[in-house]
Computed example of a mutant assay.
Amino acid sequence: MNAGQADPRGPDVVSPEVHAAPGPTLLVPGPVLDDPAGQQARESAAAEQALIEQRPIGEVVQALAEDRVEQPAGNASQEAWADWVIATHPALDPEFLRAMKRDDLREQYGS
C-alpha cells in the first residue's frame, strides 16, 4: 500500500507480505485501509493472535471478518459517516472528522 507514492522503507508503506509467506497464510479480510497506520495495526493484531497466541488462522480470520465495520449508506447521517471513518481510520483526529460534512467524508473515505 502506498508503493510508488512514499518512501518504500518508510512508515507510510505497508506490505502484508502475501507473496512470500509459505503454507497457510494469514490474510486480513476486507479492503486495504487508506490509512497506513490503521492497516498496520489490523495486520499486527492479526499476526499477534495467530503467531504469538497460537490461535488457529481460520479462527483469527473469521473473527476479523466479523469485526469489520460496514460502510454506511450514501444518504446516512453525517454522524454515521464520521463514526465509520473513525472506526476504520483510527490514526485520524476524531474532532477533525466530526467537523467535516457528510459528503466530504463520503467522497474522501468512502469506496
Results as ranks from 00 to 15, higher is better:
Asn2Thr: 12
Ala3Arg: 11
Gln5Cys: 14
Gln5Asn: 14
Asp7Glu: 10
Arg9Met: 15
Pro11His: 04
Asp12Tyr: 09
Val13Ala: 06
Glu17Ile: 13
Val18Ser: 15
His19Gly: 15
His19Leu: 15
Ala20His: 14
Pro22His: 06
Pro22Ile: 09
Gly23Ile: 02
Pro24Ser: 09
Thr25Gln: 14
Leu26Ser: 00
Leu27His: 08
Val28Gln: 11
Val28Asn: 07
Val28Tyr: 05
Gly30Pro: 05
Pro31Gln: 10
Val32Arg: 13
Asp34Ser: 15
Asp34Val: 14
Asp34His: 14
Pro36Glu: 06
Gln39Phe: 05
Gln40His: 10
Ala41Asn: 02
Arg42Tyr: 02
Glu43Cys: 09
Ser44Gln: 10
Ala45His: 11
Ala46Asp: 03
Ala47Cys: 15
Ala47Ser: 15
Glu48Ser: 14
Glu48His: 14
Leu51Lys: 11
Leu51Ser: 10
Glu53Pro: 08
Glu53Tyr: 12
Glu53His: 13
Pro56Arg: 12
Pro56Met: 01
Gly58Leu: 11
Val61Ser: 03
Ala63Glu: 08
Ala65Arg: 14
Asp67Gly: 07
Arg68Trp: 08
Val69Cys: 00
Val69Arg: 03
Val69Ala: 04
Val69Gln: 04
Gln71Glu: 10
Pro72Phe: 00
Gly74Ser: 06
Asn75Lys: 05
Ser77Pro: 09
Glu79Asn: 08
Trp81Pro: 00
Trp81Ile: 03
Ala82His: 02
Trp84Thr: 08
Trp84Val: 04
Trp84Cys: 01
Ile86Trp: 13
Asp93Ala: 09
Asp93Gly: 07
Leu97Tyr: 11
Met100Leu: 12
Met100Asp: 10
Arg102Asn: 02
Arg102Ser: 00
Asp103His: 07
Asp103Asn: 12
Asp104Thr: 12
Arg106Pro: 01
Arg106Gln: 02
Arg106Asn: 03
